[in-house]
């Protein structure tokens, strides 16, 4: 069939001579889309079949350990590390974000330097530093800077392994959180701040009630990414022999030799909890979308 039709002869019937109501709309067909669906479905079925039938997965062992008390306790530790890391990390991140937005070049530079250092040093290197803090500073003194100290603690009492882990995760997280919060605040129209100032609304209230709720629209998706990334990042803490999820399954497979089913135990927990965090993210985003649509 030629691509360009001959001009219709003057005598031929106009299209739809029977009346437009008799014309049926035929949607365009997508045969390749159906082919792709078929191929994907076959591959997926193969994968699931393999999971179910390959005895090497040892599902019986998986079932034995997935809700074992030691594993549940380790899941709790992982969640605690995530919660503390997120809370402290974002608290410090918010402070750093406002330092970077400050009018003082010195404060801006310090915050910028912090973000540079803590984004540059790999988390695992940093965690080992904190773990060895007692080697660098044997005692921690509270008192006048460069002057006499009033209270003094042995470092190992103050910063145990768990403390070092939380500190490392939080400081690492703060660098990323600072950038996310700063981006969110910059995304709010300057007119909002100006309108709040023109109404005489006190400064902290301007931030808390006017700027931050609007910034949260830009902050929430990125923050959720960070929390999920931190949640998995807690597995790095296993190098410090803290009984979080990944460390615990390593201990168990070290004893039993059942590596694959125990890795699967950890995987399933990570999947489930990330899923739960995603649901939470959805609700948080919906909350801060108030008034965003007509």
């Amino acid at each position: 069939m030629p691509l360009t039709a001959e001009p219709p002869a003057a005598t031929s019937a106009p299209p739809g001579a029977d009346g437009p109501e008799t014309l049926r709309v035929v949607p365009v067909r997508h045969p390749w889309r159906w082919a792709a669906v078929a191929v994907t479905a076959v591959l997926l079925a193969q994968f699931v079949h393999g999971l179910a039938t390959n005895p090497a997965w040892e599902w019986a062992v998986f079932a034995q350990y997935v809700t074992a008390p030691a594993v549940l306790h380790a899941v709790g530790t992982t969640l605690r590390l995530t919660a503390y890391g997120t809370a402290l990390g974002f608290a410090l991140g918010i402070v750093l974000a406002f330092l970077r937005l400050s009018a003082s070049p010195f404060l801006r530079a310090v915050a910028h330097g912090y973000v540079w250092v803590f984004r540059s040093v790999p988390l695992i290197v940093q965690l080992l530093f904190w773990f060895n803090l007692a080697y660098l500073y044997r005692r921690i003194d509270l008192g006048v800077p460069f002057g006499p100290g009033f209270f003094s603690f042995p470092t190992t009492d103050l910063v145990g392994a768990m403390g070092a882990a939380v500190l490392g995760l939080a400081l690492h997280q703060a660098a990323y959180a600072a950038e996310i919060v700063r981006g969110g605040v910059l995304a709010v129209d300057a007119g909002q701040r100006e309108a709040a100032a023109a109404l005489g609304i006190p400064r902290l209230r301007q931030l808390r009630r006017i700027v931050l709720p609007q910034a949260m629209r830009a902050i929430a998706p990125n923050a959720a990414n960070e929390v999920i990334s931190l949640f998995k990042g807690t597995s790095i803490v296993s190098v410090m022999a803290i009984g979080e999820l990944f460390y615990q399954v390593q201990v168990i497979y070290g004893r039993t030799g059942r590596v694959v089913p125990l890795l699967m135990v950890a995987t399933v927990w990570y999947l489930l909890l990330t899923g739960a965090l995603s649901v939470l993210q959805h609700h948080v985003e919906r909350h801060f979308a108030k008034g965003a649509t007509r």
Partner: peptide, 25 residues
């Protein structure tokens, strides 16, 4: 700033682009 904010409560300002707070009713 606090004193300036207090002075502004006596002076109403209406902007060209309204600048209503979109997340508040």
């Amino acid at each position: 700033e606090r004193e300036i904010l207090r002075q502004r409560t006596r002076i109403g300002f209406v902007f060209q682009d309204f600048h209503l707070f979109p997340h508040l009713t």
